[in-house]
Simulated scan of single mutants.
Amino acid sequence: MTLLTNEILTEALAHVPGWVYEDNAIRKEFVFKSFPDAISTVNKIAVVAEEMNHHPEWTNVYNKLIIRLYTHDSLGVTTKDIRLAHAIEVILKENG
């Protein structure tokens, strides 16, 4: 999988609000009303990530979820990461 150029990455991030590029990955922090809401979302994302065979790096503390995406075998951001970020945004939009 080919790493995205800076130009393509900048354009792609414009379509996934709140995602930022740092340390060869894209990252976003989410805050939920409660711990169960955060975990429910994690479980929904896990199903999609498994279907895509692309697994996020994430941290959950109480109602906060931090997701970091990068393509492990490419050591940076590829289209796989942008597609998963889009899918995550759809999940969040569907769940309010």
Rank of each mutant, 00 (worst) to 15 (best):
M1S: 11
T2G: 06
T2C: 04
L3P: 04
L4G: 10
L4S: 05
N6M: 12
N6F: 02
E7F: 11
E7P: 08
I8S: 07
I8P: 00
I8T: 09
I8Q: 09
L9Y: 14
L9N: 13
T10A: 13
T10C: 05
L13C: 07
A14I: 06
A14Q: 15
H15E: 13
H15W: 05
P17Q: 11
P17A: 14
G18R: 07
G18M: 07
G18D: 07
W19K: 06
W19F: 08
V20M: 07
Y21G: 04
Y21V: 01
E22V: 11
D23N: 13
D23Q: 10
D23M: 11
I26V: 12
I26W: 01
I26Y: 02
R27P: 03
R27C: 15
R27V: 15
R27W: 11
R27T: 15
K28E: 01
E29N: 14
E29V: 15
E29Q: 13
E29P: 02
V31W: 01
V31E: 14
V31L: 08
V31I: 15
K33F: 11
K33C: 12
S34R: 11
S34W: 13
S34K: 14
F35E: 14
F35K: 15
P36K: 12
P36D: 08
P36N: 10
D37S: 12
A38Y: 10
A38V: 12
A38I: 11
S40G: 15
V42W: 01
N43V: 13
N43I: 10
N43Q: 13
K44G: 00
K44I: 02
K44S: 04
K44P: 01
K44Q: 06
I45Q: 02
I45S: 03
A46Q: 00
A46K: 00
V47S: 01
V48F: 00
V48P: 00
A49G: 06
E50G: 05
E50L: 07
N53R: 06
H54C: 05
H54I: 08
H55W: 07
H55V: 09
P56V: 03
P56A: 03
E57I: 08
E57L: 09
W58D: 04
N60S: 06
V61R: 14
N63S: 15
K64D: 10
K64L: 08
K64W: 08
I67G: 02
I67Q: 01
I67R: 05
R68H: 11
R68I: 15
L69R: 02
Y70V: 00
Y70M: 06
Y70W: 09
Y70R: 06
T71Q: 00
T71F: 04
H72T: 03
H72Q: 04
H72G: 00
H72D: 02
L75K: 15
L75P: 00
G76P: 13
V77Y: 05
T78I: 05
T79R: 09
T79V: 10
D81R: 09
I82W: 04
R83E: 14
L84N: 04
A85Y: 09
H86R: 14
H86L: 08
A87C: 11
A87P: 09
I88N: 03
I88F: 05
E89T: 12
V90Q: 07
V90Y: 02
K93C: 05
E94Y: 03
E94W: 03
N95K: 12
N95M: 07
N95A: 08
G96S: 15
G96C: 09
G96W: 05
G96F: 07
